[in-house]
Design a binder for these strands. Structure first.
Length: 273
DNA sequence: CTCCGATCCTGATGGC
DNA sequence: TGCCATCAGGATCGGA
C-alpha cells in the first residue's frame, strides 16, 4: 500500500478510533521488525500508555503516547488497522496492541519488511530527522530545489525515491509525477532546467493530493485500514500501463528498470533530453 | 558526500 | 496440477 497518500489515508482512518484509547498490552511475532527492541521490552514500554495523537511524517505513522512515540513504517506490504479482538486474527498479522475498549490495533505484513519502533521523549533517530520536505505542507520554490539538486548526478526518477529530498514519494507516484511534469525519468537531477524544476515543485504536491483525495491507490487487492481501499489506481496515467496509449499523446507507454525498480513513462511527451 | 548493487522477506502471477 | 522464474507500493548497508 504505502506511499504518502496511502499512509495518510490509514492515519485518517485509525485516528478517531485510537485517540485517547490506551494500550493495555502488546504482542509481536517477528522480533527482527522491532530492532533494537525486544518483543518483551517493547511491550513493557508501551503498555499502560494512552494514545494522544496519530500523525504522519513522510511514510512513517507516528502514535504519540504519554511518554514517547510509537513509530510504524509499513514498507512494502504492511497494513495497520483497528479490529474487534473477538473477530480473531487475519492472515499475516505480526503485531497486536490491545486497547482498553476491547479492540485491537493490528499490524499485518506479509513480507515482514515493515518496522515498529518506540522512541522515548526527545529521541529522534536518523530515520526521522533526515527526512526531506513534506510534500503537502512545505511550499518548495524552484530555487530551493535547485540548491538541493545541484550536486546530484542521479537520474531524476530514483531521486524522487530519495526520502531526504521529498519525504513520502514512492515508486508509483514518482512515475506519475514525472509524466505530469513531462520530464524524462532518465534525466540527471542537476541538469533539470529551471522550467522543469518549476513543474516538479508544482506536480509533486498536486499528484499526491489528488491521490489522497481518492483515498490512495489499491493494487493487487491490498486494502486500506477499513478494508475498502482507495480508487486512485484507476486514474494512474502510466504506472503499470506498459504498452497502453499515453493519455496525452497516444504513444505506447514504456517500462524500464532504474535502480532495481520499474519506471513507466511516455517516450514521446517525456523525451526532454 | 554521492552512487550503485546487494540484501532483507513472502506471496501472487504467468509460462511451460 | 506442479514447478520455476519473475515481480512487488521500501529502505538500508557496504564498497567504490
Amino acid at each position: 500500500m504505502p506511499e504518502l497518500p496511502e499512509v495518510e489515508t490509514v492515519v485518517r482512518e485509525i485516528r478517531g478510533e485510537l485517540l485517547n484509547r490506551s494500550i493495555t498490552a502488546a504482542r509481536f511475532a517477528v522480533p527482527r521488525q522491532l530492532q533494537p527492541h525486544t518483543p518483551r521490552g517493547l511491550a513493557r514500554a508501551v503498555a499502560g500508555q494512552t494514545i494522544r495523537d496519530v500523525r504522519r511524517r513522510g511514510k512513517h505513522i507516528l502514535l504519540q503516547l504519554d511518554r514517547g512515540l510509537l513509530l510504524v513504517h509499513l514498507r512494502m506490504t504492511g497494513r495497520l488497522y483497528v479490529r474487534e479482538a473477538a473477530d480473531g486474527e487475519r492472515a499475516h498479522e505480526r503485531a497486536w496492541f490491545d486497547l482498553n475498549d476491547g479492540r485491537v490495533l493490528a499490524f499485518r505484513d506479509a513480507r515482514t519488511l515493515g518496522v515498529i519502533r518506540y522512541l522515548r521523549d526527545g529521541e529522534t533517530p536518523l530515520m526521522l530527522n533526515r527526512l526531506g520536505w513534506e510534500p503537502l505542507s512545505d511550499r518548495v520554490s524552484p530555487e530551493e530545489l535547485r540548491t538541493v539538486l545541484s550536486r546530484r548526478t542521479i537520474a531524476v526518477k530514483p531521486l524522487l525515491l530519495d526520502q531526504k529530498v521529498w519525504a513520502g514519494i514512492g515508486n508509483i507516484y514518482a512515475s506519475e509525477i514525472l509524466w505530469e511534469a513531462r520530464i524524462n525519468p532518465r534525466k540527471r537531477a542537476s541538469r533539470l532546467t529551471r522550467s522543469e524544476m518549476e513543474r516538479l515543485c508544482q506536480w509533486v504536491p498536486r499528484v499526491l493530493q489528488r491521490a489522497l483525495d481518492r483515498g490512495g491507490s489499491t493494487l493487487r487487492n491490498f486494502v486500506g485500514a477499513d478494508g475498502r481501499g482507495g480508487s486512485y489506481q484507476r486514474e494512474l496515467r502510466v504506472y503499470g500501463r506498459e504498452g497502453e496509449p499515453c493519455p496525452r499523446c497516444r504513444a505506447p507507454v514504456r517500462r524500464f528498470v532504474q535502480a532495481q525498480r520499474s519506471t513507466y513513462y511516455c517516450p514521446r511527451c517525456q523525451n526532454t533530453k
